[in-house]
């Protein structure tokens, strides 16, 4: 084997530079929902991921989840108004697997029609210079949320720890807040069940009844138990608007949000932005950290690394 063969050619350096530009252009384009501004001479070698190691990312002795859970526990010791929860999503690592989407649905027992964290898969470019970007979209837990002032009954507000919450017992289901969110992060609970269109009946040769029961146990949002029942007077959260809670119920017991712990690409980071030593603070402060639709003026607490 030829040992002294150079494996980095000047061209490949140049390519890297071009691709580096592409990477940021990609996100700019994405934020404007515009078309990708593409490098004309896109080289065949696409490694659009510049080396930007950061502390704590690949510590061989600890999964980053453990580090973050430790930090979370530390944050929980502080009074609520001294924490500021934030999230960082590394789009370079996001594989578009939608595990976070489904994890969130299952964790919060979301019914059909309600989703807190869809992942947008967007194709850009022209064959053969094409790429796909994956954009998971939780609630941005905005510093200046557009969704809260519109609520006629004050059912939704920004909590002291930065989480924008909805009190299902107060919400009247007017859906004004849904229209106000620039990220479409709020959805309405129509009171459906996943098995609504499947054959109905008693258990016999088929498990028509017993295999539906899993939808009945209450969910734990906001650390309470919410039982579903529809009908003339629905029970919360049926008939309410719903949104990502940053898994407040899990934070309370010292656990990371579901979409963080289940992230297949380890692309989602979470913690207290007020803690300068927390991994999220470090990541949110990196040069490649951006926010979605900054022009909306909502100052998200969710950052994207591009």
């Amino acid at each position: 084997m030829n040992k002294d063969r150079p494996d980095r050619t000047p061209e490949s350096e140049e390519r890297r530079a071009v691709l580096g530009k592409m990477a940021s252009a990609t996100f700019a384009g994405l934020m404007l929902s515009g078309v990708l501004a593409r490098a004309q001479d896109a080289a065949p070698q696409k490694t659009p991921i510049p080396a930007r190691p950061f502390k704590g990312s690949s510590d061989a002795n600890q999964d980053v989840l453990i580090r973050m859970q430790g930090e979370l526990e530390r944050a929980m010791q502080k009074p609520i108004n001294e924490r500021r929860w934030g999230m960082v999503i590394d789009m370079r690592k996001c594989t578009g697997c939608a595990s976070c989407t489904v994890g969130c649905v299952m964790e919060n027992k979301l019914p059909p029609g309600v989703v807190y964290r869809p992942v947008i898969d967007e194709e850009k470019g022209t064959y053969p210079n094409v790429t796909r970007t994956f954009l998971p979209r939780p609630c941005m837990q905005c510093e200046t949320p557009a969704c809260t002032p519109v609520c006629p009954v004050g059912a939704t507000w920004k909590g002291a720890d930065g989480i924008v919450v909805i009190d299902y017992d107060v919400c009247i289901g007017c859906r004004y807040c849904i229209t106000a969110c620039p990220y479409q992060a709020r959805t309405f609970d129509f009171g459906q069940h996943w098995t609504d269109n499947a054959a109905k009946g008693e258990d016999g040769a088929l498990a028509l009844k017993s295999a539906r029961a899993y939808q009945d146990p209450p969910n734990f949002e906001y650390g309470k138990e919410w039982k579903r029942r529809e009908g003339i007077i629905p029970k919360s959260p049926v008939g309410n608007t719903r949104k990502c809670t940053f898994c407040a119920h899990r934070l309370k017991v010292g656990m990371l949000p579901m979409c963080v712990s289940t992230c297949v690409g380890r692309a989602t980071f979470f913690g207290d932005l007020n803690d300068p030593k927390a991994l999220v603070s470090e990541l949110a402060g990196m040069a490649n950290a951006t926010q979605l639709k900054p022009e909306a003026g909502t100052h998200p607490n969710v950052y994207y690394l591009v």
């Binding site: 929902s33 989407t101 059909p112 992942v119 898969d121 954009l135 979209r137 479409q184 979605l292």
Partner: peptide
């Protein structure tokens, strides 16, 4: 005013196969 997604591609990201409410 409501029929175009605020984020392009959101329309395909997650659907409601039961009542089409997404």
């Amino acid at each position: 005013a409501q029929v175009t997604p605020e984020l392009r591609g959101l329309e395909h990201a997650y659907l409601d196969p039961i009542g089409n409410h997404l």
